[in-house]
Design a protein around this nucleic acid. Structure first.
Lengths: 228, 228
DNA sequence: ACTTTGTCGATTGTCAACAGTTTGATTTTG
DNA sequence: CAAAATCAAACTGTTGACAATCGACAAAGT
């Protein structure tokens, strides 16, 4: 399957092949079409996407910098594997970033924004009622990304998005254990309540705790990092 | 001036031209040899470094992802300019990341590590006595980077290093106003003291406050972001 | 049997050339 | 004289080709 030549050629005025390919590769990685640890064959990708190796290589350099792949000289680029250790580190960083988002948003949140966030939480409740994990997950994603978005700090949003893309490489569902979704969404309501009350510290703390709870569920004890 | 051919060729086994060039470009940007807003001419750079345009372009994609340059299609790559707004955002993110570093380090800091950090603070005191800004700045840098390093969270360290490289693009000295260095180093001693006392919350708070103080000095009011 | 060495195919690193776009100056036109 | 149109130089985007390197397998030696 090659990129739709018509649209690709049309878009070329405002976007380079490199960026199109990078998005495509990101999508492939996120969807698991390229599995963690797998090597990206430049020739094969070039043939598959109908371009030469140049843009492929450039796209890979971007992915490398954003942590989605790692490059070994003369051996190729590999989809990065994230071990427990790295995942735990990522959770810690994400926790404080989400905390910051809450702290920034609480004082300035609007009624409209509260309404939007409430919608997401309700969606997740509905998903819980039908035990539909595939409906819960996007809601969860949207809830957190929207908070970060509303915070007003663009750089923070960028950072969180980047971390989120990376986290996809460590697919072990936090939430698919019995009762986990209920607890998670209860925490969401708490977060929402603190935000609506314009309680900066409370929102920050609730968000931080929310992430760290997930971390604990994944890795058990809070203490040192797991090896691996 | 081209890259030393002997060492370059020797290193090539373990490092690609692309990564060498990326480091070189980072250095050029950090040193101000490439000024903010300036365009990077691929041909000129290729000639100057004695390579073809391929590795140059690949290196630029990496720099783009790490936020040091931005690319406009068909027009080239430009050293990124950071406005007040973005700088303020960066300070906020950095503040919570430093805070996390302190929170992680405080419980596990060793006597040896305390000694190292103390050395840096003393160095800065010496620089203050001679009003030597060029000696204060590296000490300040080392102090903070070392704390982040000692925290044990590799990802956190990576993130902070990245932010720091970006911050170089907003060269407006926080510390060169009268009395600023003294205040700053007093805060450093406070941070060090909290760390040595294994006071996680205290260290986190001190570090966060330290960064936000710098931010205030730069931008005045804490409130909304400056436009620009 | 086990290690070592040599060779081959596949793949990456690098380069030079081509095609399309932008920019700025020059010419043309009202 | 000013504004639009034109044109050429410079530059970026992309490609295909060549050289260097790696991994695997087979052959030779201990």
């Amino acid at each position: 399957m090659s990129i739709d030549s018509e649209s690709a050629l049309h878009i070329r005025r405002t976007e380079s092949l490199t960026s199109i390919i990078r998005r495509e590769l990101e999508r492939m990685i996120a969807r698991g079409e390229l599995k963690a640890g797998e090597r990206l064959n430049e020739n094969a990708l070039a043939a598959k996407l109908g371009v030469s190796r140049g843009p492929i290589r450039e796209a890979c350099r971007g992915l490398e910098q954003s942590g989605l792949v790692h490059v070994i000289v003369n051996r190729g680029v590999f989809v990065r594997e994230i071990g427990q250790r790295e995942a735990a580190e990522l959770y810690e960083v994400r926790a404080v970033l989400y905390g910051l988002a809450g702290r920034l948003l609480a004082p300035i949140i609007s009624q409209e924004q509260i309404r939007v966030l409430t919608t997401y939480v309700d969606q997740m409740d509905a998903a819980i009622k039908t035990s539909d994990l595939n409906a819960f997950y996007p809601g969860n994603l949207a809830f957190h990304e929207t908070i970060v978005e509303f915070s007003g700090n663009g750089r923070l949003a960028e950072e969180c998005a980047s971390i989120h893309r990376e986290m996809h490489l460590f697919r072990r569902r936090t939430l698919d254990m019995p009762g986990r979704m209920e607890i998670s969404n209860r925490e969401h309501r708490q977060i929402l309540e603190r935000l609506a009350a314009h309680d900066a510290n409370g929102a920050a703390q609730a968000l931080e705790a929310h992430v760290l709870t997930s971390r604990e569920v994944l890795f058990g004890e809070v203490g040192r990092y797991p090896e691996g």
